[in-house]
Design a protein around this nucleic acid. Structure first.
Length: 497
RNA sequence: GGCCCCAUGGUCUAGUGGUUAGGACUCCGCUCUUUCAAGGCGGCGGCACGGGUUCGAUUCCCGUUGGGGCUACCA
């Protein structure tokens, strides 16, 4: 057992300003996997220091997304814990205390520059090629000057006084030592004019107060880390360990964002992804177990995950591969369980009643079992499996072209309908025997009966084993469909479109 | 522009101072079957470039190039 002080604690600290982004889910997953692998704690903390953009709705969306992926947390806004509250807007007095402490010790100072002035000066610095950091205009205001400005009621923010010389070295578990030249780092704002702390202030105070042992976050924060580290040092906090994860990129290799299509994690649920597949997929972007394996379930991911396996370079979100992986999960899925997740979708499409009877459900499980071999997304069941549920299914162009519009098809379909009617029993063996028997009598290949039949009954040229598929449909339905296609064919209504 | 990070096929990646550089997705063939968007088999395709170090570099160092991130009173 490790002692309390050396307990592994990681956190995911999203800001509730939108849905749970795929990138955020990736970060959360890695931090969670690390904690779980190490037998530590995973904390959820809400960083709502952006008073303007934070919403209650986003918070709910974050919960939904994490729960969907089965990422659970040990401490958080909804379950409390020894270091709460876990919502930053409820910790304002804590930050205020540290900010005041910093002002008193001289490591922070009031800045009366207006945003407009700052912007103007930044432009000039940029134009001259000088690092556009705060020029410290207010860094050395005298007590009198400050009193005066305060008396005037001039609005101000508070800035942290960074070290002016030397280097700040960030030891990153993934990238090694990264050094930054202090002279290039500016005094950043720790308290906004509104009185709210900035992210930089809150994140430092909370990570330290909440005893986060490993700050695992996306690489976009690496450049901010020297500032955080100096703040921690000034506050007398012990530095946590850092691990900056590679970013997820879009196919154009830039940071994944809205213009790359779906970036909201839950959009993938809508698209028909299974949470375990998405979790697996996210895990293997920027991480590898080292061996030639990539299909890993919940427990395997936890067992294999290490920071050493995390790569330094960013990875592209390849929807093609995600879809393939989802298909693998579908194949391996338990038909009963899969039926449960599919039911709402089928009901939404109006393909099945709200409360199927036990028999009906049993039938559905058989359909799902037959279909899951060749599906890649949950939505495939709806688009490719329509014919199991309704007579209102389309005849696709391949089926029309190759079989349904052929001259001898109607007659064969009618003969097959007769044959099907006469079968003693309605099961796979009888159906197969009936179909093959007809082909033999007609002295044609079995395919010449099978394909038209599939085309007529499913409207498609592809699908599961025909005999098994027919067995799952009522005999009358099959006969009716054969006759209907024969009739439509004769009337020339099944020509390719 | 400045600072920081990164660099193995189109994509995700394994890997080593000496390997036929391995796997997966995609793509393309072939094959099985009643079909393929299923299965099986096979194939195309890669160490960014230039210098070093070394008997030998994909691997170590430097540079270049390329890509990305940060440069907010957003997080």
């Amino acid at each position: 057992m490790t002692g309390y002080m050396s307990e592994i604690r990681t956190r995911f600290a999203p800001s509730p300003t939108g849905n749970l982004h795929v990138g955020g889910a990736h970060t959360a997953l890695f931090a969670w996997l690390f904690a779980r692998h190490e037998g530590g704690k995973f904390i959820l903390r809400i960083e709502d220091t952006d008073e303007v953009r934070s919403t209650e709705q986003s918070l709910a969306a974050i919960y939904d997304g994490l729960r969907w992926l089965e990422i659970d947390w040990d401490e958080g806004p909804d379950i409390s814990g020894p270091f709460g509250p876990y919502v930053q807007s409820e910790r304002l007095n804590i930050y205020a205390q540290y900010i005041n402490q910093l002002i008193e010790s001289g490591r922070a100072y009031r800045c009366f520059c207006t945003p407009e002035e700052l912007e103007e000066r930044r432009e000039i610095m940029r134009a001259r090629g000088i690092p556009p950091v705060y020029d410290r205009t207010c860094a050395n205001l005298s007590e009198e000057q400050i009193e005066l400005l305060l008396a005037e009621g001039k609005p101000y923010c508070v800035r942290f006084r960074m070290l002016e010389t030397g280097t700040t070295v960030v030891n990153d578990l993934i990238r090694g030592d990264v050094s930054f030249d202090n002279s290039l780092l500016g005094d950043f704002v720790i308290r906004k004019t509104s009185g709210y702390p900035t992210y930089h202030m809150a994140v430092v105070v909370d990570d330290c107060l909440m005893k986060i042992s490993h700050v695992i976050r996306a690489e976009e924060h690496l450049a901010n880390t020297p500032s955080h580290v100096q703040l921690m040092d000034a506050l007398g906090f012990e530095r946590p360990k850092f691990a900056h994860l590679p970013l997820i990129l879009g196919t154009d290799k830039t940071k994944l964002s809205k213009r790359h299509g779906a970036v909201n994690l839950m959009d993938y649920k809508e698209q028909g992804f299974l949470p375990e597949a998405m979790r697996n997929f996210l895990a293997i972007i920027g991480w590898s177990p080292g061996a030639d394996e990539e299909i890993l379930d919940h427990d395997q991911l936890i067992a294999r995950f290490t920071l050493e396996g995390v790569s330094k370079s960013p990875g592209v979100f390849d929807l093609e591969k995600a879809t393939w992986l989802n298909g693998e999960y579908l194949k391996r899925a338990d038909a009963e369980k899969l039926t449960d997740t599919l039911l709402p979708l089928l009901q939404k499409e109006g393909l099945i009643e709200a409360h199927p009877s036990p028999e009906r459900r049993e039938w559905l499980v058989a359909v799902v079992d037959l279909m899951k071999e060749r599906t890649r997304l949950l939505t495939d069941f709806v688009t490719w499996g329509r014919y199991y549920f309704t007579e209102d299914y389309p005849y696709d162009n391949e089926a029309r072209k190759k079989w349904l519009s052929k001259e001898d098809t109607p007659e064969r379909l009618d003969m097959l309908a007769d044959r099907m009617k006469e079968l003693e029993t309605w099961d796979v063996e009888a159906i197969e025997a009936g179909i093959r028997g007809l082909a033999e009598e007609l002295e044609i290949g079995a395919g010449k009966v099978i394909h038209p039949c599939r085309s007529a009954v499913t409207g498609q040229t592809i699908g599961p084993s025909l005999f098994h598929l027919l067995e799952l449909l009522p005999r009358e339905t099959v006969v009716a469909r054969l006759r209907r296609a024969a009739e439509l064919g004769r009337r020339g209504e099944l020509a390719p479109v």
